[in-house]
């Protein structure tokens, strides 16, 4: 979703509805398009990921990649453990 006008403030909540226990979800921040344009080989860091070996317990982590430009972009993802050891590459 985009809104190109000044002084428009935007928030969103993506959530799971339809269950008897109410809703569960989270806020997803609105990002200015000039903030989202990364030039060259800029690197971002995500921390706090977790992946349980047992699909029925613990956590799993999903990673989203969004190209906000009009040209194809190549993303390289490297996954490290908490000690900084490289565990895999996408």
């Amino acid at each position: 979703m985009t809104t190109p006008f000044p002084n428009k403030l935007l928030w969103s909540r993506t959530y799971n509805a339809g269950g008897t226990s109410g809703t569960f979800g989270q806020e997803l921040p609105a990002i200015f398009d000039d903030e989202s344009k990364i030039a060259g080989d800029a690197t971002g860091t995500l921390i706090g990921l977790s992946q349980s070996a047992d699909a029925n317990t613990g956590y799993r982590s999903a990673l989203g990649l969004l190209n906000t430009g009009y040209n194809a972009a190549i993303f390289k993802v490297e996954l490290f453990d908490s000690d900084g050891n490289l565990k895999g590459t996408l």
Partner: peptide
Amino acid sequence: SGDPTTMPAKWAYDAQRGLFIPV
């Protein structure tokens, strides 16, 4: 459900800037 969603504050800005919600 008791599930909270935290909405961080935003404030007015002068420039004409597009906004994305990534998903």
